[in-house]
Design a protein around this nucleic acid. Structure first.
Lengths: 80, 80
DNA sequence: GGGAATATTCCC
DNA sequence: GGGAATATTCCC
């Protein structure tokens, strides 16, 4: 599966829910704790565990960061 | 390290010796059992365990297959 | 946040 | 065996 396919699988994965989820409005992705998410979840779906590489892919596929806090991280897509 | 750096490390790695080595003439690389090499050695150095991906990199860096047998696999570099 | 380099995959 | 697409890294 492509990046978008893996992103969908990840957001569907109950064991990943503590680390990443759709926002309550359903129009963006929230990463609850980027560094834990990177080590615990990323390697299950990608060939790396770097949050920056995940963000690079999000950006390539049209997502951009919307929240300003550093602890949680939210990405919206203009199509929503 | 780059691909060539990892290749050098791998050929230096005693635990990898049963799977991959310099030829006796020192001018090419011999993979003794490609499928075992792929599963046992590749993931220690690269983000995959596919022999074809390793060969793709060898080709990109100027190595080409010289032996015809399928069980062992030899790659020479024109610089040697 | 994204351009470019390199790695990995896919396909001919 | 290599071109092209995609992923990952590196760097600005």
């Amino acid at each position: 599966p492509s990046f978008i396919g893996k992103l969908a699988m990840m957001l569907d994965d109950q064991t990943a829910a503590p680390y990443v989820a759709w926002s309550s409005t359903g129009d963006s992705i929230i990463v609850i704790n980027p560094s834990l998410f990177a080590t615990q979840v990323l390697p299950r779906y990608f060939k790396h565990s770097n949050f920056a590489s995940f963000v690079r892919q999000l950006n390539l596929y049209g997502f951009h960061k919307t929240s300003q806090e550093s602890e949680t991280c939210e990405f919206a897509h203009p199509m929503f």
